[in-house]
Write a protein that binds this DNA or RNA. Structure first.
Lengths: 196, 196
DNA sequence: CTATACATTGACCGATCGTTCTAATTAATT
DNA sequence: AATTAATTAGAACGATCGGTCAATGTATAG
């Protein structure tokens, strides 16, 4: 009950909790009561700090996109084989999304859930997807330089296929109870990609 | 205002309208008023015929799954090259999902939106995905028989990859305004698959 | 010490949600 | 002609939604 002139909670920390709720329940289904309980802060604090629900969602997706991009970037830019880095990334996602109760990618589920007509959220998502696509392109080009895939391979198309598959994986992970399906997906991609 | 003892509307026809609303807005965001307006029937008729919102959604997804399965089956079982049939199917989806304002696959968006914890809807979705996977497997096996892909190719994994990619496509189609991205996805898949 | 900024709880708001129900109406059946 | 099944519009329901506000308390800054 009242803690003085400094915020008594870490903004990023409670935003992380909000991300979890939105990812698990979806934008519409997530109620403010749920968010409040999970975030563990007062109603007034929430509205003062994050604005209304849509604004909170925008901040949550923004943070999620930033963190996700950094994570992908780090994993793809590890030293060694670029192609193996891609494979390791997808294997990582297979494990994360294959767990029972996995919620998938907040951005992916939000594309389906949030009305993306022409709001800021839609722009945020397009920008994120574009940047991740670029990460794949750069990595695939390095794979070309190292002779891992064919010189004349269409890296942009392959990058887009990877982007698409990653979203599909997080979606399928939500509904399939065992990770078997996702293992197959990754195998399917790389039995093909390894032949390049 | 009152039309006698026979239903004055075609059940499947208004269910089709409901499918559109759910696909466009998502389960939670779609309100009964919206559904009523779009379906063009009275409130009592709706509740008498379809039960409550969840039951209506279940019937809508059921019909959608059935129609989708039949469409896929028909396209994959056309005479000629099985591999080309798969490619034609994905090219078709590229065009459908690439259109501005496309809503994507009702089942895909519902996976993200509807709470799939352990309801009938989740079972319906798993069953549908499994059946479509089987369609791909059968088609890929025929492609093997005809020497279109390698004898030792892991057709189950490739089938799962295709299933995953198709869901990713319908998701990306919702948020990307131009079909360029999806064209790349299809090209990416088949530049790889053609090498098998 | 005083003032200020931030916190908390909880009551409260109007709007809308999904749903039920009543009343009136119509057309086919018997 | 009477009955029955299906329709419609619309009133009304309690619940819950997102959001606001007032009252109160507390730690820091000057």
């Amino acid at each position: 009950m009242a803690r003085g002139p400094n915020k008594q909670f870490d903004v990023d920390e409670v935003l992380e909790k909000a991300i979890n709720v939105f990812a698990r329940r979806g934008y519409e289904a997530a109620t403010m009561s749920e968010l409040l309980t999970e975030m563990g802060i007062g109603k007034k604090s929430l509205y003062d700090t994050f604005g209304n629900k849509e604004s909170l969602f925008f901040k949550a997706t923004g943070r999620y996109a930033r963190l996700t991009y950094n994570d992908i970037s780090e994993r793809l830019n590890k030293p060694g084989s670029p192609l193996q880095n891609i494979r390791a990334l997808f294997t990582h996602w297979k494990e994360v999304n294959g767990k029972p109760g996995s919620c998938g990618c907040l951005l992916g589920t939000s594309i389906a859930d949030f009305n993306t007509d022409d709001t800021d959220v839609a722009l945020l998502m397009r920008g994120h997807l574009q940047r991740v696509e670029d990460l794949y392109v750069q990595t695939l080009k390095r794979a070309q330089d190292q002779g891992e895939i064919a010189e004349n391979a269409d890296v942009i198309s392959i990058a887009r296929m990877l982007l698409c598959a990653s979203q599909g994986m997080s979606l399928l992970g939500r509904v399939m109870e065992n990770g078997e399906m996702l293992s197959g997906v990754v195998d399917g991609i790389f039995t093909l990609l390894d032949k390049e």
